[in-house]
């Protein structure tokens, strides 16, 4: 465990050089998205009142809170991990010290946890300022959002470790991340989709996270019992946590 903390420390040392830009985007991006899509586009949506009494801003903000965690989780688990194996080779360097492979995996996962938490808290605060939902409700949703980020990050870390070439990662973004982002309920209610796509969307972890976040922030009824949503997200996290060290070992030692 101390090994993982040292890996985390290494990440934070590197992060010191770039944190300024990243903190700016952590706060600026929610402002931009919420004002453009939530308020701007929202004014058009609310005209037709197709979401009933719910404002589009609240609907969109609650969805994006979870979707953003997915993007951070996948983003940090893809190219930076590939860089550790292939470009900067920091994993090879670290393994020449007493650091173990599990430490690499869980140190990096802890780093992602911190990043997702920071981004989620920032988003929740900005959204509360925009009046999307109450700040207390938003903060109770943060643990769910972090779970969502890790449910994506760990399986993607395992996948990244198993691929030689970064083109596989681009495929993950284009065929995985983009459709999940667009079609799992972030931008519009699922019931507008054809039945078969709705059924597919229920397999997507993001959908479960959004259901939970909306239940917590908007008092909406979730599609399934809470335990089912949380259990499904945890399942992905555990599978990823089991697979990732194996794939790392195969890549680094074998």
């Amino acid at each position: 465990m101390t090994g993982a903390l040292r890996v985390l420390e290494g990440q934070l040392v590197a992060y010191r050089r770039t944190w300024r830009g990243s903190v700016i985007t952590t706060f600026i991006n929610p402002v931009l998205f919420l004002s453009a899509m939530g308020l701007g586009l929202g004014s058009l949506v609310d005209r037709g009142a197709r979401l009933g009494s719910l404002s589009y801003l609240a609907f969109y903000a609650s969805g994006l809170l979870a979707a953003q965690a997915m993007q951070t989780g996948v983003g940090d688990a893809a190219f930076p991990v590939m860089a550790g194996f292939k470009w900067s080779k920091t994993y090879h360097t670290a393994l020449a010290t007493p650091i173990a492979i599990r430490d690499l995996v869980f140190g990096h996962a802890t780093f992602i946890l911190l990043r997702v938490t920071l981004a989620a808290v920032a988003f929740a605060l900005v959204a509360a300022i925009f009046g999307a939902f109450a700040v207390t409700a938003a903060l109770t949703a943060v643990p769910v959002v972090v779970l969502c980020g890790l449910a994506y990050a760990l399986p993607v870390m395992a996948f990244t470790a198993s691929r030689e070439h970064e083109s596989a990662l681009i495929a993950v973004f284009r065929f995985g991340l983009v459709p999940m982002f667009l079609l799992s309920g972030t931008f519009f209610p699922l019931d507008q989709l054809p039945g078969w796509l709705q059924a597919m969307a229920t397999l997507v972890p993001l959908w479960h996270a959004i259901e939970l976040v909306r239940a917590l922030t908007l008092d909406a009824a979730s599609a399934l019992p809470w335990a089912a949503h949380v259990g499904y997200l945890t399942l992905w996290l555990v599978v990823g946590a089991l697979l990732a060290p194996r794939m790392f070992r195969r890549r680094l030692v074998a």
Partner: peptide, 27 residues
């Protein structure tokens, strides 16, 4: 080649989401 070809798929997702999703919300 995969990366290049996959670039053609992305707009389909976006246009689909705009058409059946946002389009029906906005009118």
């Amino acid at each position: 080649l995969m990366v290049f070809v996959s670039g053609f798929v992305e707009p389909v997702f976006y246009l689909f989401a705009i058409d059946v999703g946002l389009g029906r919300l906005v009118g």
